[in-house]
Design a binder for these strands. Sequence first.
DNA 1: GCCGTTTTCGGCCCGACTGTTTTCAGTCG
Length: 599
Amino acid sequence: MNPSNSASNLSAPMLNVSNTQLAEIFEEMADLLELSGENAFRVRAYRSGAAAISALSQPVSELIKSGFDLTSIDGIGGTLADKSKVVIQSGALPQLETLRQAVPRTLRDVMKVPGLGAKKAMKLHQEVGVIDLATLKTACESGRVASIKGFGKKTEENILQNLGIVMQAAMRLRLDQAEQLVVNLRAHFDGCPFLERIDFAGSYRRRKETIGDLDILVISENAEEVMNRFGSFPQVHEVIGRGETKMSVRLNNAFQVDLRVVQRQSWGAALQYFTGSKEHNVHVRSMAKSKGLKISEYGVFKETDEANPVAGEDEQSLYAAIGLPWIPPVLRENRFEFQPSIQSRLKNLIEESDMLGDLHMHTTFTDGEATIEQMVAAAVERGLKYIAITDHSKRVSIARGLNDEQVLAQWQLIEQVRKDWHGKIELLKGIECDILEDGTLDLKDDTLEQADWVTASIHFGLKQSREEITERILNAIRHPFVHAISHPTGRLLSRRQAYEADWPLIMKAAKAHGKCLEINANPERLDLNDLLACAAAEAGVWLVINTDAHATDQLGLIKYGVQVAQRAGLARQSVINTLPRAEFMDWLKNRSRIPSQEL
DNA sequence: GCCGTTTTCGGCCCGACTGTTTTCAGTCG
């Protein structure tokens, strides 16, 4: 880039480049550099840079505007900070354009076929002219791939088979779906005489919102038999690989499950290793290294004695060996779990048992399956101390949303029901009121004023611009009778992207007006996600964790919301519906109380 | 390219498995 270009870029207006777009540019840089045979560490630097950008809750463009030093972000150094600025200011990265001239971008798809990587993808490109998945398919079918040195007939067949999977797109299970699979697998292994211990690790154990594959860990003296049992699981479509201690299968729905057999004395080390995340483990191992220790999935070893482990039979001993408390899996993302304040944070991490209220649920008045009385009874059964019935407002016609008259009638009924449960649970007159496309609310102020609890949601007009969506949410936050914003980002996992909005601005407004942002615990939503929930808490905003239950058994979904909050590192002091009943009712009256920031 | 109680160079987690070649590179997690 010549100086005049640089100067004109600096004076150019900032473009609206999102963090996702910037991260994708760094991802592509990493892929194309790797294909070019660049230094692996340089490649990794771009990858972790992309991950760091994705994890930010504030747009990089805003950070740059405010003069924030990007190099203070872990994984962003001088070079990536400069390149970020170039991208934000010009919308493109010259180095990336140059790379694209040298390496076809579509080779990125090729290197993501299981079994292929950058080296093989590039070889396929150079030897037989593969440029994308289609030419790869043709090359395999014509037998040209098998003739390349380092490839063979088997490789060619595998590529053809895996191509089908890649074309099926990324197959991920939602956490609740993964949980069902785990239940089935446990049942399948139940009674296996060779199984001493079994557990499920990976992102499933970390309670990530979606799971790319499942890792099973077992202790057994007879790996053969355990693997045979594994292979006979009815949903297994094919065995991808099988060695002495490790076996991988693909299920009928293309989902991959790995099984690993370990020794008793390695259990903790193996569980820790296979729970990840990768980034967490890299940090753990480098901490060990700085203490003259080496950590592998077999244990913790002194560098001078690699035969006798000093720890690793359980996870506690492994963490203790490097001077850390046991870190709950939900926190193992290399975000803040290594910070010195971790001890106090762990002590205060929110638990499901802290949840005393549920302030978002539906009944037969709209699209729920249970009556008000049934929902109340189920809530009492679960030990809840207060709930709000929040059916839809009229805009959600498909759910037979309530108009002003209907909701007032429902609230009269609630006042009746309330008497029957006096002393057992506080029953609140609530409404999930739509935020209309123009930013006004779906019901009259006269109506909303009579509610005990109003949670405002967007269900329509999701394709509006970032500015319009932001303004709608801000309007709802400023509205005097609104208490909370439900499923604030509108995403549906693996079905619908979150809409874009100015979250820092929204959080600032929520704090100023004393309004809550919801963590919707429905496993199809989990909205806010962990990163935004963390940012909201740090911004001093009350969070509220609700089930959005449409049936009595869905009150049990609360655990998924709590797990999001745990991944966000939240203490119960950040979540309004952990307050005891009297304190919560007091907050409803004057809303003067603010979330405690102490950790 | 990042990072620093080993601070401006010299490291950067580490082992299993596969398919190939025959002692190992590439891929994966």
